[in-house]
Simulated assay, not measured.
Amino acid sequence: MTTLLQGGGLLDDLQHQVAVFARRAEQTRLGGVGQVRNSMDRAAYLLLNRLDVEGPMGVKALAAGMGIDSSTVTRQVAPLVDTGLVKRTSHPDDGRAVVLELSQRGQARLDEVRSSRRELMALLTEGWTQEERESFCTLLTRFNGALSERQSAGQPPSGAGPGEPESEATAS
């Protein structure tokens, strides 16, 4: 890799590329292609995805799994409930507790967005080999894991204040 920033080293180049990626990901929301493009914000996508993968759960469990606080989850889930993508149900063992669950409409919408995003990933990496795609995914997963571990240890990444968690709920 050539040095992109004058006088900088590899870590300077890396931090610069991460910053550029974050800006471009936010600008495009990596929403996909076609009519679905930019039609679901990242918080909604990540919440729906977690409910799909892990099943119904309470706000506290959802917040803990995403590395954000319960009030943030409550605020982010409200429009998903209002639009019928998520439904609130009673906990099977404790009728007083509320469980969040992906609705049929939410599942259909999530499937549509996933498909569109897969198509975008295919387009962005169409000149890549399967091995390059796998390597990139492995390294990006490892990078995100390191960020998550740092946050879990109470050390927000540089640029994130205490009220601004940089977890999967705020990442694209």
Rank of each mutant, 00 (worst) to 15 (best):
E119Y: 01
E164F: 12
L46H: 11
R50Y: 06
M40N: 07
A160P: 10
S115V: 01
S167Y: 11
P162A: 15
L85G: 03
S158C: 09
G55N: 10
E149S: 13
G161C: 08
P165C: 06
E166I: 13
F136V: 09
A122G: 03
V113P: 00
Q27C: 05
F21Y: 08
E112Q: 08
T28A: 11
L4I: 02
E132Q: 15
E166H: 11
A22Y: 01
L47D: 08
E131Y: 05
D69R: 03
D12L: 01
E164M: 11
A108G: 09
S70C: 10
T138K: 12
M40D: 05
S71T: 04
K87I: 07
G58Q: 11
V53F: 05
V53D: 08
R96D: 13
E164W: 14
S135G: 08
P156I: 07
T74P: 01
T125I: 02
E164G: 09
L100A: 10
A43K: 12
N49Q: 08
E119Q: 04
A19W: 00
L11M: 09
T141Y: 14
R96N: 13
T125A: 01
R88L: 00
A160F: 10
W128R: 06
F136H: 07
V36E: 10
S135H: 09
Q6L: 00
V77M: 01
G159Q: 12
F136A: 14
R109D: 10
G67V: 00
R114W: 03
Q76Y: 05
R150A: 09
G145F: 14
L62N: 08
R88E: 10
K87Q: 13
D111T: 09
P56F: 05
T28L: 12
P157C: 04
D12C: 00
A153E: 09
I68R: 13
L110G: 01
V81F: 00
A97S: 14
V59H: 13
E126M: 06
F136Q: 10
L11F: 04
L110A: 03
A169W: 11
E26L: 11
K87W: 09
L10R: 05
A22N: 06
G67E: 01
E54M: 12
A22M: 05
V77F: 01
I68A: 10
H91M: 02
E112R: 01
G127D: 13
L123H: 13
M1W: 08
C137V: 15
T74G: 04
G163H: 06
L47T: 15
T89D: 14
G58I: 03
L102G: 08
P162M: 08
L140G: 15
L100R: 10
L10Q: 06
G65P: 07
R117E: 02
A64Y: 11
V98N: 02
A153G: 07
D41F: 09
Q151S: 05
Q76L: 04
R150K: 13
P157D: 15
S39V: 06
S167K: 15
L11T: 06
E54K: 15
S148Q: 15
A171F: 15
G145S: 15
P162K: 12
H91L: 02
L62C: 10
G32R: 05
D111V: 08
R29Y: 05
V73Q: 02
G31Y: 00
D82L: 10
D111F: 01
S148I: 14
A44Y: 01
P79K: 01
S71A: 06
D69S: 05
L120P: 03
